[in-house]
Design a protein around this nucleic acid. Structure first.
Lengths: 114, 114
DNA sequence: CCGATATTTCGATGAATATAGAAATATGAG
DNA sequence: CTCATATTTCTATATTCATCGAAATATCGG
């Protein structure tokens, strides 16, 4: 994952309706959801939702697949995991930051925000 | 972590110079770096970098601390981990998506992008 | 083919964001 | 107190983004 595609993915998620749509798809699982169902659930006009779904797809965060008259969207977890990996890459310059329990992407977020 | 703070964090990272600065701080570790050093490393004017660092700080992704004439910035890993947790929350509706090896935030990104 | 359904593309408008020089603020040294 | 250093705030401009109705495209049933 390079800088440009990372920015595209982050920008895609940094918007109210797109973040909501993505989370909805994450919860929907591999089955996915039709574009119309997503628009209905989030109470966003179809044309607006289409605009946002296109950006999520362009960023690779969701896949689209036509099924009859509907287009089914589904979350792609791999891209999001790649995102996280890119952000924490070469953490602490490779030094032993495990002592601080800071670099591990697995730990829960309990540290104080200074 | 709620929707608004998540969007703020994602938007903060979705910009070339801010993403580069954050990654630089992640690699710098707990020691952090002075604002001027970051601006020099990324070849961005000081006033522009200050604008970007303020946004990262407002999103909680970095902390700032004055040390003599310098202001030292350091990455806060907890917020980023909280970010990832929020995105994958209630994945697959809680069903057994482990069979698909899709929901785990730990796995490496090797699945095909459909 | 024709009508109904599902979704996308187009187009215009208003809002938010990035940029960088100049001026202002804060700290330390002599 | 004064000068030098480090960073931020101010200000203006150019670019990008979100919105949503209307029209266009694609698919299915009869």
């Amino acid at each position: 994952m390079d800088s440009q595609s990372t920015i595209r993915a982050l920008a895609a998620l940094a918007q109210e309706h797109r973040l909501a749509a993505f989370r909805l798809l994450v919860q929907a699982g591999p089955e996915g959801m039709a574009a119309g169902a997503i628009a209905d659930a989030l109470e966003v006009p179809a044309s607006s939702m289409s605009f946002h779904l296109a950006q999520l797809a362009h960023a690779g965060l969701v896949s689209q697949q036509r099924r009859s008259r509907s287009i089914i969207y589904a979350a792609d977890y791999a891209v999001m995991n790649a995102l996280m990996a890119y952000l924490t890459e070469n953490c602490c310059g490779g030094a032993s930051c495990a002592s601080d329990a800071a670099c591990s992407p697995i730990q829960s977020a309990e540290r104080n925000v200074a």
